[in-house]
Amino acid sequence: MSLPKGLAEEVSRNLVMVARLIDEDPEQSYAYARIALRLASRVAAVREAAGFAAYATQKYSEALAEFRAAKRMTGSVELWPVMADCERGLGRPERALAMAGEPEVQKLDKAGQVEMRLVAAGARRDMGELDAAIVTLQSPELASHSVQPWTARLRYAYADALLAAGREDEAREWFAKTIEADKDGATDASDRLAELDGVEFVDAAAMDDADLDDEPDEIDEDDDQDDAEVAAAERASDQAEYYDEDDDEYEPVPDSDSDVDVTDEIVVIEDDEPRDERDEREDRDKA
Rank of each mutant, 00 (worst) to 15 (best):
S2D: 13
S2Q: 13
P4Q: 02
A8R: 00
R13P: 04
N14C: 12
N14K: 12
V16W: 05
V16R: 09
M17S: 15
M17T: 07
M17R: 10
R20L: 12
E24D: 15
Y30H: 11
A33T: 07
R38K: 11
A40G: 04
R42W: 08
V43F: 01
V43H: 00
A44R: 05
A44N: 08
E48A: 03
F52G: 01
F52H: 10
A56P: 06
Q58L: 09
Q58G: 05
Y60H: 04
E62T: 10
A65I: 02
G75V: 12
V77D: 08
L79T: 05
W80C: 03
M83C: 00
A84N: 01
A84C: 06
C86W: 04
G89T: 02
E94T: 06
R95H: 06
R95L: 06
L97P: 01
A100Q: 02
E102V: 01
P103F: 11
V105C: 05
Q106L: 15
K107W: 09
A111K: 12
G112I: 04
Q113L: 13
Q113C: 14
V114A: 03
R117I: 03
L118K: 01
A120T: 02
A120F: 00
A121V: 02
R124C: 02
D126E: 07
G128F: 00
I134N: 01
S139N: 03
R153F: 06
R155E: 03
Y158A: 01
L162P: 03
L163D: 10
A164W: 00
R167M: 09
R167T: 08
D169A: 10
F175V: 06
A176H: 07
I179S: 05
E180C: 07
A181C: 07
D184F: 09
T187Q: 09
D188I: 04
D188F: 05
E195Y: 08
L196W: 02
V202H: 12
V202C: 06
A204P: 14
A206V: 15
M207S: 13
M207C: 09
D222N: 09
D224V: 12
D226P: 03
A228M: 07
V230N: 06
A232E: 09
D238C: 09
Q239Y: 07
Q239R: 14
Q239K: 08
Y243L: 11
Y243P: 04
D246Q: 11
D248V: 14
D248A: 10
D257R: 11
D259E: 13
D259C: 05
D261W: 11
V262L: 14
V262C: 07
D264A: 10
I269K: 15
E270I: 13
D271I: 13
D272R: 08
D272V: 10
R281Q: 07
D285N: 10
K286T: 07
